[in-house]
């Protein structure tokens, strides 16, 4: 219940923060929803914590140039309720509403969640389906990583030492698109045993675009590209859903074995597709 002692700084500007993060054993504190419990259990014991909570302007949500830009420090609650996100990226808003509980959503942040890369986190599924771009910066770099290249392994991302997530950019969903997020929540933790986020576009009754992001099933979230392709080739959703997770490693724990997780991913892919199809115009 009691973390180890650490040095603390709360930079007032991004430059200051990036300067601090350029060296040393420093851990970023965003919403703290993953970091603080780990510190309390002493599974994490950083020498210094850099709190990004005092930097103005890191939590903004704007829409420009066909993209919604969401600041890394935007809370899940903000994402869930933002009119811009709800209008332009409803899949992300819906996914945010499934995270943890209201208290967690009030504190937890988009950037913190994706940088932590918990294999059972909700956001990665949606970011993959939305083909999000993640802007990461350090004291001497500023680059953009596609969501598909960002989640590398359990708790491992494409972030280099000294880099932080600055914002997430999402292409505005067409209003004709259908979307859906179907999740099996662990009864204790609320994390995704499996979560499947889906976007589709239909034309003349045919699916011409399908994106499927899967979280919880494996060590990291992934795109179910084979299933997407089948859908775009005209396969029935059941047939496409049946190949979700093929070739992907699956996690196994007390609550759900690898086989069951893979099975759930397929069932929930089919269900998410059905929801998405019902919403597509």
């Amino acid at each position: 219940m009691i973390p180890q002692a650490f040095d603390y700084s709360a930079p007032q500007s991004l430059e200051e923060a990036l300067g601090l993060l350029a060296s040393g054993d420093r851990k970023i504190l965003a919403g703290g929803m993953s970091l603080i419990p780990m510190m309390k259990l002493r599974l994490a014991a950083p020498a210094e914590v850099v709190d990004l909570g005092r930097i103005a302007g890191l939590d903004g949500i704007t829409e420009a140039g066909g993209f919604v830009h969401i600041g890394a420090m935007a809370t899940h609650h903000t994402v869930e309720t933002s009119p811009a996100v709800r209008a332009s990226c409803p899949l992300l808003a819906e996914t945010a509403s499934h995270i943890g509980d209201v208290q967690v959503r009030n504190m937890g942040t988009l950037g913190g969640s994706i940088a932590h890369a918990d294999p059972a986190a909700d956001y990665p599924a949606a970011l993959l389906a939305l083909e999000a771009e993640i802007r990461v910066v350090s004291a001497h770099s500023d680059r953009t990583v596609n969501a598909a290249d960002f989640f590398l392994d359990a708790f491992t991302t494409a972030l280099e030492p000294g880099e932080i997530v600055l914002e997430v950019r999402l292409p505005v969903e067409q209003s004709s698109e259908g979307y859906g997020y179907e999740k099996v929540a662990h009864p204790a933790s609320g994390f995704a045993v499996v979560g499947v986020a889906v976007r589709i576009t239909r034309e003349h009754g045919r699916i011409i675009m399908a994106r499927i992001g899967v979280t919880g099933m494996g060590p990291h979230a992934f795109r179910a590209r084979a299933a997407e392709r089948l859908l775009e080739e005209g396969a029935a959703p059941e047939r496409a859903a049946a190949v979700v997770g093929e070739g992907e490693e699956a996690n196994s724990d007390l609550y759900a074995s690898a086989d069951y997780r893979r099975h759930l991913a397929r069932i929930h892919a089919r269900r998410a597709l059905a929801v998405a199809l019902s919403r597509a115009s």
Binding site: Y8, A10, G32, I36, D51, H77, Q103, N106, M107
Partner: peptide
Amino acid sequence: CTVMLQGRAVKSCTMFAVQ
């Protein structure tokens, strides 16, 4: 441990006082 912080409910065990 739930309290309101700036009018929103948070778990005060998952926050440092400095925050």
